[in-house]
Structures are given as structure tokens and as C-alpha cells.
Design a protein around this nucleic acid. Sequence first.
DNA 1: CATAATTTCCGCGAACTGCGTACTTATACT
DNA 2: AGTATAAGTACGCAGTTCGCGGAAATTATG
Lengths: 121, 121
Amino acid sequence: MLENLSELRKKRKWSQQETADQLGIAKSTYAGYESGYREPSLQSLSQIADLFETTVDFILGRTNEEQDQIEVTNLLKYPDSRLLLDGKPLSEDEIVDFVAFVRSKRMLRADVSKPSIDTRE
Amino acid sequence: MLENLSELRKKRKWSQQETADQLGIAKSTYAGYESGYREPSLQSLSQIADLFETTVDFILGRTNEEQDQIEVTNLLKYPDSRLLLDGKPLSEDEIVDFVAFVRSKRMLRADVSKPSIDTRE
DNA sequence: CATAATTTCCGCGAACTGCGTACTTATACT
DNA sequence: AGTATAAGTACGCAGTTCGCGGAAATTATG
């Protein structure tokens, strides 16, 4: 965990001491993070991300391994405003219409063997 | 800190108990996170981000958007299969049809003053 | 080599986590 | 209303972990 830290620091040619100083923590503390011996508090973690001008997710190695994919039907279960059209969020109704629209087209085109899926819970 | 948690959970209409169960922790533990009384370990934090399909940075309040917002018309410029319906990527044609579909409905509903925008480059 | 700089290891005290439990508040039902 | 069930909050304990200083080990530099 946090194995990205070492690289981030070395890329900047900082010593652990310098880095710790900038973070306001003891060098042994910071060293513990790099080695995996210790984990930082959430506050320290945020400060570290700020210092290296990166994200907490990157430091944690949560690299968006898979490019973010969005299943449209999930947008109906948990409404949010992630999809925009002409800068305006898609309403739930619009998404519902869209799902029905595409499904019907797909069904017309090909395999009737695969029925549409009920999106209700 | 972590004040986004409550919203993420409520949007899914989960109780604290249900959420804690999914995370494999005690409900009082999870409740402590929402109230700010306790902070999760980095491991729990990652699990929480996974459960809510968001980023650690968002949970920590380090970023405004829960997820990247996607402008549908941009998908036509740079096709990338990010949108799935029933697990199957939306084709360019499907997106084109959808854009036209929603735009026409939006125009019907309200201001005719704003014509649809040409999606071609 | 010798010396300095950097990194890693260690032990301690303080602080925090995670849990169960108990308590308060909200919701549902008759 | 009154009661029962669920939901959310607060608290104390046991065990773990943090953060630190200082010492060992490793690496860089002359």
C-alpha cells in the first residue's frame, strides 16, 4: 500500500526528511508510510496528496484500472447527474425513455432470444 | 469529514445497518464514520468507495463531483464505449438517435428558442 | 576507506479503532 | 394515542496502531 509514494517523492528529488518537513511530521513517520510499516491518518493522507499534487486514490493505488464505464440502467437505481446532454443533466424520464428506445431498437434488429431486463428492484 | 457518506447512502435508500452489513463492519462503526465520531481505516475507506462506486477523494470531500460527468455529445467525438445498456456498449448510432430523441422532446416541452445543436464536427 | 547523508528499524506512550451494548429518535401498525 | 419495531446515536472497554525520538543499517560522496 502507498507504494506510489516513493516514486512521487523521488521524481521530485526530495529526501524523506525534506518531505516529512513539508508535511510537518517526523521523518521516521513518513518513512513508515513508504515502507508500508505504518499508514497515515486521513488528514495526513490528504496533505500528502496535496503536497504531491495528486489524488488520494492514486496514492492508494486505486488506479482506475478499468476505464469508468457507466451502465445506464444503474442511473435509474441511483439517480444522479452524471450524464449531460447539451450541458443539461438527463432527467430520469429521459433516461427511462432512452432505455426503452434503445432496447426496442435492439430487439427489432436481432436476437429475440434475449429479453429485455426488468430494471425494477 | 466524510459528510458525503450520508448522502451516498440515502441516495441508495440503505439503512446504516444494511450498509454496515455490506461492508462487513458493525453498524455502530459505520455510524461513527457518518457522524464524524470515528474515521475508517484506509482499507475500509477503499471498500466504502467501492461500495458506493465513487472515489476516495469524493468521500473525503476533496473533489466536488461524485463521478466524472459525461457529456453525451462528447461520446460522439471520441467513441469509447463508456456507456453500457444491459451490459452492452452503446453504438454510435444509438447515441446519435438518442441525442436527437431527447433534444426533440426537450424542444417540445419548452423553449423553442433554443434549437438543437448540430453534433457533427 | 572514511565520513556524511539517507533510509530503515525499534520501543515506548498516547491515541485511536472497532465492537457490543445501551440509549434516543423515527417509523409503522392497530 | 399507544405500542412495537426499526433506525440512528452515544459510550466504555480491549486491543491495536500511530507518531515520535533515537539507534542501526544502508547508500552516497570525497
